[in-house]
């Protein structure tokens, strides 16, 4: 029946129709596999209750001048620091220094609230919790791999690539802040 050598479709059948069936079957199979695999992969992403715990209110009157309170937000530490005028002055003075991740001190706090520095207390290198008071810039020092942050939480030395991250937050009143 076959009149051409190498002809794979039997005579009398439309090759494009056969191709269409192959492509359609493969596409359906790929879609089916994808729709089965996706739930198996996506189940590992944060669950609904984890996402629901995303905001927190905090009473600032508990924090004395020049001290810091660490609170847990989304499983991570958040530093709420009431900076002294000396710390603020030091941070401002370094606004134009050679910074790895350039940022002005004014952009690190809410307008008119220079004393309140609220940061995610997780080193941007590998996530350890830096401690205040160590390091060469009077800010935070990460004990794991030696990253130094200044009094505005900006990275100054060490392997961390970025400044300590700022969480989303808003002042509800002078003594109350909502994080997240």
């Amino acid at each position: 029946m076959a009149d051409t050598v190498g002809e794979i479709t039997p005579a009398g059948e439309d090759p494009s129709r056969r191709d269409f069936i192959h492509v359609a079957a493969l596409a359906a199979a790929a879609g089916a596999v994808g729709s089965v695999v996706w739930p198996l992969v996506d189940q590992m992403n944060p669950s609904g209750d984890m996402l629901a715990l995303a905001s927190l209110e905090f009473d600032l009157s508990k924090v004395a001048d020049g001290s810091e309170v660490t609170i847990k937000w989304r499983g991570k530490p958040v530093f709420v620091r009431k900076r002294t005028p000396a710390e603020i002055a030091k941070a401002k003075a370094d606004d134009n220094a050679d910074l790895k991740d350039p940022a002005k001190d004014a952009d690190r706090h809410k307008p008119g609230k220079a004393e309140w520095l609220i940061l995610i207390g997780s080193c941007t290198h590998l996530g350890c919790v830096p401690t205040f008071g160590g390091g060469d810039w009077g800010g935070w020092f990460c004990p794991c791999h030696g990253s130094h942050y200044d009094t505005a939480g900006r990275i100054r030395k060490g392997p961390a690539p970025k400044n300590l991250a700022l969480p989303e937050y808003a002042f509800l009143s002078d003594t109350k802040v909502k994080i997240g």
Binding site: V41, M44, N45, P46, S47, M50, R74, G75, K76, S122
Partner: peptide, 17 residues
């Protein structure tokens, strides 16, 4: 990392998996 943790930090879902 979020996918691996099952959250925004190492937490219960991480331990469980």
């Amino acid at each position: 990392t979020t996918w691996l943790w099952g959250g925004f930090a190492v937490d219960n879902p991480t331990l469980n998996r």
